[in-house]
Amino acid sequence: MTSILQVTGLTKHFDGLAAVSDVSFEVKRGELLALIGPNGAGKTTCFNMLMGQLKPTAGKVEFNGRDITGLPPRKVWRLGIGRTFQITGTYPSMTVVENIQMALLSHHRRLFDFKSYAHLEYKKEAINLLELVGMPEQAERACAILAYGDLKRLELAIALAHEPSLLLMDEPTAGMAPRERIALMQLTADIVEQRNISALFTEHDMDVVFAHAHRIIVLNRGEVIASGSVEQIRNDAQVREVYLGGGTLYQSADGSADGEHSHA
């Protein structure tokens, strides 16, 4: 597998405090890579540097061999990276389908078009994307009244609008019910596989991570403390100590004899 995103020595200081220090990793084509770690470990900061919402203090981000460090988000997006946010950022004053049409209009560089009616442009493509995430019947509803889980799916559809080769998803399932979480990540995994694209995501729900991630990177206090396969991470002593915990919570709750983090 070829590398699509290459991160080297990424570092960010806020007021002299290191939020992320010397983080290096790569995302390979077709890979679903999870970035996990406690709150405040620097996951979101890391994400914001990958897509240009924040400028790194030091380090380099390369996408398809091209240095994108410090480029503004809109330029990074044009190169083929889609992003979803921890707290959704859709446009509440537009309908669901218009939210996607907006991204398509931007993708086709039609933003300074003063003439056409925006709600008629690229409608079919937008509906197709809604079908992909399973909510075409909601197309004409106002985005402001969508349920949270639907907003998350809509965000995914928007992120896919310009056919990116890499998805960055910051806590894609936060605030969703357990069953919805599994469904959304399954959907993401399917899309990644079908389109042979890659996805990097952060997540707190270990069920989701362990079920879908091909590989996991663990951050703590801004540093990478472990990376590897699901099995390796589960059994890593340091990861257990700072993040996963002893498992007592889940074991006692499950009451199952084998107990090894197997919760329904």
Binding site: R74, Y91, M102, D113
Partner: peptide, 21 residues
Amino acid sequence: SPFGYALRASRDSARQAEATG
């Protein structure tokens, strides 16, 4: 028009708008 929509998008969520070009 698309321009008017882009203007509303910038108001509704500048972060999302910037992250979509």
